[in-house]
Design a protein around this nucleic acid. Sequence first.
RNA 1: GCCGCGGUAGUAUAGCCUGGCCUAGUAUGCGGGCCUGUCAAGCCCGUGACCCGGGUUCAAAUCCCGGCCGCGGCGCCA
Length: 442
Amino acid sequence: MLKDLFIADIYARKHELLGKRVRVCGWVHNIRDLGRLKFILVRDRTGVLQVVVKKGESPEDVVEKAGDLRLEAVVCFEGVLVESRSKFGVEVKADKLIVLSQPVEPLPLEPDTSLEAGLATRLNYRWLDARNPRVNMVFQFEAWVARVFRDYYTENGFVEIFTPKIVAAGTESGAEVFPVIYFGREAYLAQSPQFYKQMAVIAGLERVYEIGPVFRAEPHHTTRHLTEYHSMDIEFGFIEGPEDVMAMVEGFFRRLADGMARDPRVKPIVEEFQASLRVPREVPRVTMREAYKILEEEYGKKIPYGEDLDPEGERLLGKYFSEKYDSDLVFVTEYPWASRPFYTMRKPDEPEWTYGFDLLMKGLEVVTGSQREHRYEKLLENLRDKGLNPESFQFYLDFFKHGAPPHGGAGMGLERIVMQSLGLENIREARLLPRDPERLLP
RNA sequence: GCCGCGGUAGUAUAGCCUGGCCUAGUAUGCGGGCCUGUCAAGCCCGUGACCCGGGUUCAAAUCCCGGCCGCGGCGCCA
């Protein structure tokens, strides 16, 4: 192994390492060449460390090789760690230099200032862009969010599942699907694990979760849509109502907020982005009918009764609950039947409304969930009511023929949660290699 | 899919409205030189661009049309 210490480890253990030889491996972040004295800043995932090369003190070959270095070359320096007059506090007096890789062409993008470039350029050269510490942090944060999700639901008795991404039918009415040719037959990329996670509950796993890609063939041109994103899904049985599902979603977001405030693994990231997530003791819930009223009375915005919120409506509701309830989250409950998929359970006494809900985070929909319809006959009714042909959903209906507990679940958009947590302006920033209607490379 | 705005060196920008003063300015990168404590190092020299096609005009980076691409809003959705 060439590398034994991250730069952050060197800083963390500096009292122990001062006066000792260390090896620092990474990318050449900056070169301040004063002639016989050169300062070379080496960067890795965890930070930047200064290396000093002095003519007369450092070995001749090191001085020579250091003089030829270009920005973003990959190097390992060895030398004694000493106190430094620089802002870095410590520095390495180089006595050995291994050049592992030297750029063969001028840089199309400088990682240090890549954030000044347009997003399209940055994405075209993502392998340079993501060397920018701030950009790198986004993906470290994303990994952490996924980990918090796994930890939280595992602790609550959920089992991780892995469902097919090549499917025979589109799962929900609504989003368009990408066709693929499957040994001469038409198949599709899964737009949601919905049917299979329900099946897993019915199959006796009882509480399941999955983090996986989903595909939406919608030609969106917005800052919050991707054609491929990651859905963090949960589904669990033996619930008494949609409130049980919301409580299970709320618990995860509370864990997320606590982690952002306290977890040392993300502390530097949260500080860098000045990120915060306010989750009050009770996350507010409003029914869709109440939401219409708030929008009209507070903001004069009229949404046709029985219709879904538009993006402006979501933003305004987010603003309302941020200001009045000091909350970055709000559940919008009892969605109209007209705007929810057929597997959603309808309110028994008011069948025009459902047990479906959304969670808005800082004015953006990040979670959709519901209690599902688990009664075979009711599912048939719902399908017919939506004008769908039950035959094309027979494989799904069959799941419900042999004992299905009342259950519910939710899907959460990983990239949207990252975007809203860190205050990113475009969801593409929250994916290393985003796919949108135009972009298929790199 | 619809609507609006945009496209100048590797990158980010000035110039476009009001066509000629543009041999296209600046910063950074890149190449070369000077410099023994830099802190976004500095200084000197050099390199490198008007998205593509058509039109208007004596003259087009600049005005008009089409295409491609980019950015954003909407519909739909996580």
